[in-house]
Structures are given as C-alpha cells and as structure tokens.
Design a protein around this nucleic acid. Structure first.
Length: 224
DNA sequence: GACCAGGCACATC
DNA sequence: GATGTGCATGGT
C-alpha cells in the first residue's frame, strides 16, 4: 500500500527506536486489563492507577470478588478514576456479561470467534469500540488495533486522515498497514499513547521534538 | 479558573 | 449521519 501504510509503519519504527519496548497492557491479569480499560475512559492513567491499586488492596480484582462488592463500596474504591458513579454501573454491566458468557472467568473467552466476541462486547452498556478493542487485544491477544484520541490526532497531523474520521475506518487503515500480527498491533497502540503523551498532546504539542517529525508531510503539499 | 486526560450513551436536528 | 451534552477526579 500506499504512502499511508508506509507512514504508519514509519511511526511504529521511529517510536520503537525512541521509546523501546512497551510491555503493555500494564496489568497482572486479563481481568485487570478489562477493568482498567473501563476505568481509563476519558481519564488520565495516573488517576486510574490509583483506583486499580485500591481495588487490589481491597482484594477485589477478580470477577467473583468484584461482583460481590456493594455498589457504594465500589464507588468509593474507584472514585479517583473520575465518573465514578457511571463507571460503577459500567463495571456492573461488564460483570453481568462476564458472568453470563464465561462464569466470571476471562480465560473462558479465549476460544471465541474474535469478531463475534467483539460484537457481543459492543452490546454491553458502557463498552464502546476503544474499550472493546483494548480488552480483545490486550486481555485476550486478539488482532485488533485500539484507536484512541492520540491515534486520530497523530494520523491527522501527518495528513493521513481528516481530523474527524470514523473509528472503524481508522482501525481498518491501521490494521491494513500493520497486518494481523497481534504483537505489532499491541505494540503500535502502546507506542502511540506513550509518544502521544510526550509529543502529541491536544493543546501543547511538542512536534519539534517528536522523533516522527521527519515523517511529517511537506505542508506545501497537503491538500487544501 | 480553564483546560485536559488512553470514552460512551443518549438526545436532537 | 453529524453534532452536542452529561458524566467527575486530579494535574498543569
């Protein structure tokens, strides 16, 4: 493919060289990945990490233990992650799903058809595309690219997509460039987030120091 | 005090 | 199909 594919693989290469391996997702179990994916919705990871620590300290970072927590207790524990009432409900919906589909055991999901499981996850209230793909890729090792705000911003700043582009379209562009290699898809999103935090913030981008700056298209040649 | 952070559902046009 | 709004904490 194309210039677009080359640029995406170029981003992967230069960020990997600049940042080294990511070893994502930062979690000890697949269940913790799923909980973290819900808690990190529109929140800073630093705050989410506090909530996760609180859950672990309470011995609640397993399906059965979390399902047994009273609502008010759960709200208290995840409060630092923000939107705590909303996220309490979302965690409950996810636990209902996991109970129904897998007897609260993430391992039981591993053999499922990836696209069918994705559709099932998307029916859970509070699990949208990014959260579903995070769970599929990082908890279950399935070949989906997680698209987040950094991905869209970075692709747009490199002239690959318009600033407003449908999630599925960005995901397919990325997966076309990177293939069905789970390790590559996993690492690519991790690198995008790590690089995004450092160089591609929304209001204070530090493009001049970004190692991908030489991949930037010539501004004169950008479409109007 | 404004703005942002590893979104999502729902209402409205 | 696009666009706007509520949700809540902690850091810059």
């Amino acid at each position: 493919m194309s210039h677009t594919g080359e640029t995406i693989r170029g981003l992967h290469r230069v960020f990997a060289e600049a940042l080294g391996p990511s070893r994502w997702w930062p979690a000890e179990t697949p269940f913790e990945v799923a909980v973290g994916a819900i808690l990190t919705q529109n929140a800073s990871w630093k705050n989410v990490a506090r909530a996760i620590e609180a859950l672990k300290s309470a011995g609640a970072m397993t399906g059965p233990a979390l399902a047994d927590l009273p609502q008010q207790r759960l709200e208290e524990l995840i409060r630092p992650a923000g939107y705590f009432r909303l996220k309490t409900v979302r965690l409950r919906h996810f636990l209902d799903f996991l109970s129904r589909e897998a007897d609260l055991d993430m391992e039981a999901l591993r053999g499922r058809d990836p696209y069918f499981l994705r559709e099932s996850l998307l029916e859970v209230r509070g699990i949208g595309r990014e959260t579903a793909d995070s769970i599929l890729c990082y908890a279950l090792g399935m070949p989906f690219l997680v698209v987040d705000a950094y991905t869209v911003r970075m692709f747009a700043r490199h002239g690959l997509i318009p600033e407003v582009t449908d999630y599925e379209e960005v995901r397919e562009i990325g997966q076309s460039a990177l293939g069905d290699d789970v390790a590559a898809l996993n690492e690519f999103h991790a690198l995008i987030v790590r690089a995004g935090v450092t160089w591609c913030a929304k209001s204070h981008p530090r493009c001049a120091q970004c190692p991908a700056r030489n991949l930037l298209p010539d501004p004169e040649r950008l479409p109007a």
